[in-house]
C-alpha cells in the first residue's frame, strides 16, 4: 500500500503541484491586494455625492460581476495583445479587476452599515468629511469587511484555476501537465484538490475565529 502510494501520482506529483501552488498563491495574494485598493475606490465611489463617480463605479461593478471571469481573462490576454503583457500579468490583472468588483460591494456594504449617527457625531465635533471617513467610519467598517474579504480570498484562490487556459503554471495547470505525461488523471486531480483544501480549510477556520473575536 505504502509502496503503491509512494510510487504513484499521490506522491510523485507533489513537487510539481507545490510549484503550481506557489504561483496560485502569488496571483491570489497580489491580485487581492490590488483588488482591495481598486475595490475600496469603487466601493466608496458608489457612495460618492458626485453622480459621475457613482456612475463609473456602478458600471465597473455591474459589468464585472455580470460577466464570467474566464471571458474576462481571455479578453485581457488576447484582447490586449497589442501591449503583450504575458499570461502571468494577465492573470493578476484579471483577479484584480474581478475581485475588485466584489470587494467594492463588500466595502460599500460595510461603510453603509455604519450607523448614520457616527457620521453626524464626527461632523458635529468639527471633523471634515474626509477626517470623519478616515478616523471614524473606515476603522469600524474595515472590521466588518474582514469576514467577507476572507471569503473573497477563497473564491479568488479557486478562480485562479481558470488561468490554466492561458497556460499560467498554477496548480491545476501543473496537475494537467503531470497527468498528460503519466495518465494518472484521477490521482493527480485528487492531489490538486488536496492542495486547494490545504489552503482553504485553514483559512475558513481562521476566519470563523476572527469573526467570533471581532464580534461582527
Amino acid at each position: 500500500m505504502i509502496e503503491y502510494l509512494m510510487d504513484s501520482a499521490y506522491y510523485k506529483s507533489i513537487p510539481y503541484l507545490y510549484e503550481g501552488m506557489k504561483l496560485t498563491l502569488y496571483i491570489t495574494i497580489v491580485g487581492l491586494f490590488l483588488g482591495f485598493i481598486l475595490g475600496a475606490f469603487a466601493g466608496l465611489g458608489r457612495l460618492s455625492k458626485y453622480s459621475i463617480i457613482r456612475a463609473i463605479s456602478t458600471v465597473y461593478v455591474e459589468v464585472t460581476r455580470g460577466t464570467p471571469i474566464l471571458a474576462q481573462v481571455l479578453f485581457i490576454y488576447y484582447g490586449l495583445t497589442v501591449v503583450n503583457i504575458g499570461e502571468l500579468t494577465s492573470a493578476i490583472i484579471a483577479i484584480t479587476i474581478n475581485a475588485g468588483a466584489y470587494i467594492a460591494e463588500i466595502v460599500r456594504g460595510a461603510v453603509h452599515s455604519i450607523d448614520r449617527g457616527q457620521h453626524e457625531a464626527g461632523r458635529s465635533v468639527g471633523l471634515t468629511e474626509k477626517q470623519t471617513m478616515r478616523y471614524i467610519i473606515w476603522p469600524q467598517a474595515f472590521k466588518r469587511m474582514i469576514p467577507p474579504l476572507g471569503n473573497q480570498f477563497i473564491i479568488s484562490l479557486k478562480d485562479t484555476s481558470l488561468f490554466s487556459v492561458i497556460a499560467v503554471a498554477e496548480v491545476l495547470y501543473m496537475g494537467k501537465q503531470y497527468y498528460n505525461a503519466t495518465f494518472e488523471i484521477f490521482e493527480t486531480l485528487i492531489m490538486v484538490c488536496v492542495f486547494y483544501l490545504i489552503i482553504t480549510i485553514p483559512t475558513s477556520i481562521i476566519l470563523r475565529r476572527v469573526e467570533r473575536k471581532l464580534d461582527v
Binding site: 449617527g117 457616527q118 457625531a121 458635529s124 465635533v125
Partner: peptide, 17 residues
C-alpha cells in the same frame, strides 16, 4: 466645519465612537 466645532451637539443615541 469651523461653525460645527463651536457648536456642541449631544444626540439621543449618544453616538460615541
Amino acid at each position: 466645519n469651523e461653525i460645527r466645532s463651536q457648536v456642541g451637539m449631544v444626540f439621543q443615541h449618544f453616538n460615541l465612537f
